[in-house]
Amino acid sequence: MKKENIITTIKEYSIVTLGVILVAFGIQYFYAPNEIAGGGLSGLALVINNYVPVLSVGTIIFLGNLVLFIISFILIGGDFGFKTIYASFALSLVMDIMEKVFHSYALTTNLFLAVICGTLIIASGLAIAFAINASTGGTDILAKILNKYSTIDIGKSLLFVDLFVVICGGITFGLDKGIFSLIAVVINGLLVDKLIHIIEKKQKEKEIQLENVS
């Protein structure tokens, strides 16, 4: 592998790591302690954890991702698959560290603030990952597949996939929190598309500047 490729790979995985940390932080300090199942495998993991508390949220996410990895390799490709495997393992690890070492807690018990702050942080993390052809695993993989084989934007794909999780969250944690979870999913879907557009625009501007310099 050439030196340039090694540097590029390290840079890409560093960016994925940043996205993972943001997603984990949003879940562990805003969503999970307030029982907001904001879609995705993480939201589904919160529901399962409520019924099977012996399994941590991070562990459930890890087990769920094992099934989805095969699908991502077959339908999307190796580059996305490897980055997603790394991101999903990292997400489970970081979430468990936040939960068991730092004893994560609710930074706010106001559900509205929890939804807004948590979604802003999580959407930023997801957008960072998606922008370099990766994901944090889980239902993000299904959203990526839907995006690849249709004309639906990735954020809207996330919204469609996450509706099932929101319904489960509403049944498990109550209608009020179900409504807040729905709000989180809608905001997340729209915000991810917007952030990806901004990131890609910045990347294109940098490429144009480099071409002009050369």
Rank of each mutant, 00 (worst) to 15 (best):
M98K: 06
L75Y: 11
G138I: 01
N34K: 00
S124P: 15
F30A: 03
I132C: 15
L113S: 14
I36P: 04
T59I: 06
A106V: 00
G43F: 01
T139L: 13
G43T: 02
T139S: 15
A129W: 11
S104C: 02
I48H: 13
V67A: 11
L93Q: 10
T59A: 11
I122A: 12
L146S: 10
M98S: 08
V54G: 12
G77V: 00
F62Q: 08
A37Y: 06
G137S: 02
S72Q: 10
C117R: 04
A87Q: 10
I36H: 11
D140Y: 04
Y29V: 05
I121V: 15
G64V: 02
T59M: 10
K148W: 00
V57Q: 12
M98E: 09
L44C: 06
F69Q: 14
T109C: 03
I74S: 11
M98F: 15
N50M: 03
L142M: 09
V52P: 09
E99H: 13
Y149P: 01
I132H: 15
E35C: 08
G38I: 02
S56N: 11
N110S: 05
I60R: 12
L66S: 13
I71G: 12
A127Q: 03
L126R: 07
I122M: 14
K144I: 13
A131L: 01
I76R: 12
S92K: 01
A90R: 13
A45T: 05
V47K: 14
Y51W: 10
L75Q: 13
V47S: 14
A143T: 10
N34V: 00
G125I: 00
L68V: 02
L46Y: 10
I60Q: 14
I132E: 15
L142G: 13
L44T: 08
A37P: 02
A131C: 05
A143E: 11
L93R: 13
Y86F: 09
I61E: 11
G137A: 01
F102D: 05
